[in-house]
Design a binder for these strands. Structure first.
Lengths: 251, 251
DNA sequence: CCAAAAGTGTTCATTTTACACCCATGT
DNA sequence: ACATGGGTGTAAAATGAACACTTTTGG
């Protein structure tokens, strides 16, 4: 390739797309927005948008997240951790030349894990936003209102994000990102059960998570919000890598 | 692209950068090339280049790999697996607005794992290519010929690639990508030892890898190329995910 | 009282680790 | 003969899985 006139290399548009996951009513759910513009106007899609001229990729992802949902995020990169921010990390980049019918668009997908939230507050240029259980989005496309086919290659991106979340909660403390700041062992267990889609033994789970150094930090309080005997409250301990890991039961 | 004038979004250049790893003389080593052009002219860097107009990201990575090293690659995506291809997967994307002094460049880094090779055959517009042990590249930059500081943010990219390889050989069969098509259990063990930088018990290692279903497939042959008693030859079995995983000893 | 969820103890099976020992080749 | 790496046996220790049982609340 000849030196470096801007015309010497192909121009691309670069976007960020967001796989925003939460656990709602025992189901792993993703945030989807209704597109207000062509292409795929009126179709559901992952939130996202163009990266700006002077913006890093993770900044763009955090900005789009705030614009379209009102959520604040922190990733492994930033040092400040506002009390109740969601987890943000880069997922993968999608650059099929035909993935956007308009032009060549490379999309850097990000994964956001958030606690269960009040209804999403859509903003910007999206026509609506809602949580949908991931099985209704990555399963067979029935094309009704409960199984809307996603725009672009967003179904694939979502599937990759879900797979990442499923495997990452095994060996990291990321499952706590789905919990409120203070949570019980039972609530954390229901996160694992929802994300993996399996039932876990409450007794062995309790021993395991409380015995993994750095995973959980007791806050001293208790709650009975789940009914039954009062449960101790915990917050996420400092550890990011779990040793030993949580083992996902065989399929 | 009617509704979308190109001026409505910022134009980016998109490149692929390659973290090409191999195990040479018991050391995990990376492929670096000497830059023939500004910026960072004469400095060592990761191989890479611009993505073309009609090319997917993994195609661009495979093309650059072939152009600059003569290696052929196959990823999890492509179905054809030419007899002796290197493993290729996407690593991460780097888009700091200041990472390239010329203009806004987003680089999609890829990770390539290859068996030990004859001296790399540089091609294209690079001034030279060599293997360097990764410690000499990601450690403190002494700025001599043995510890050359890499161009751009390539030291960070390399570090991320090395970390990915180190963790991924734990739970996947990827370590076999560092071996020739036929290899012995001892050769595979030396791969783990080099990548992790630890010593492993040869006897327990042997039992473990031969007992993990789908990891190794005996070819029937034997070799004495390592000296001592003849060793059975294996090739990679079909499995990609190891169950149980190889456990990296504690630090 | 009962139901529900939290949490503890105990037992058995499996896996990991450490290391003694034998095997088959080259020199 | 002996050095070198390949490979098996075995027993102790650590871990994981199953499940009986107790605790503390709300209704």
């Amino acid at each position: 390739m000849p030196p470096y006139e801007p015309s010497a290399y192909p121009p691309f548009a670069v976007t960020v797309d967001l796989v925003v996951l939460t656990v709602r009513r025992h189901a792993l759910s993703a945030l989807i927005v209704r597109r207000g513009e062509a292409p795929f106007q009126g179709r559901w899609a992952l939130p996202g948008g163009f990266v700006r001229e002077e913006e890093d990729l993770s900044e763009a992802a955090a900005r789009e997240l705030a614009e379209e949902t009102g959520l604040h995020a922190h990733g492994p990169v930033e040092e400040d951790t506002p009390a109740h921010a969601a987890h943000l990390e880069q997922l993968a980049t999608y650059g099929d030349p035909k993935r956007d019918p308009r032009m060549r668009v490379v999309s850097v997908a990000h994964l956001v894990l958030a606690p269960d939230l009040p209804a999403p507050r859509p903003g910007g240029d999206v026509g609506g936003a809602r949580w949908a259980p991931v099985e209704t989005l990555v399963g067979p496309a029935d094309d009704d209102e409960e199984h809307p086919p996603l725009a672009f290659d967003h179904r694939r991106i979502l599937a990759d994000g879900v797979e990442r979340a499923r495997s990452k909660i095994e060996y990291s403390s990321l499952a706590t990102a789905f919990c409120p700041q203070e949570f019980t062992v039972g609530e954390l267990r229901r996160v694992y059960e929802a994300v993996w889609g399996v039932a876990l033994d409450p007794r062995n789970f309790h021993r395991k998570v409380t015995g993994t150094p750095g995973f959980l930090l007791p806050t001293g309080g208790t709650t009975t919000r789940q009914g039954g005997r009062p449960a101790q409250l915990f917050q996420a301990g400092g550890a990011t890598i779990l040793n030993p890991p949580m083992l996902r039961p065989e399929v």
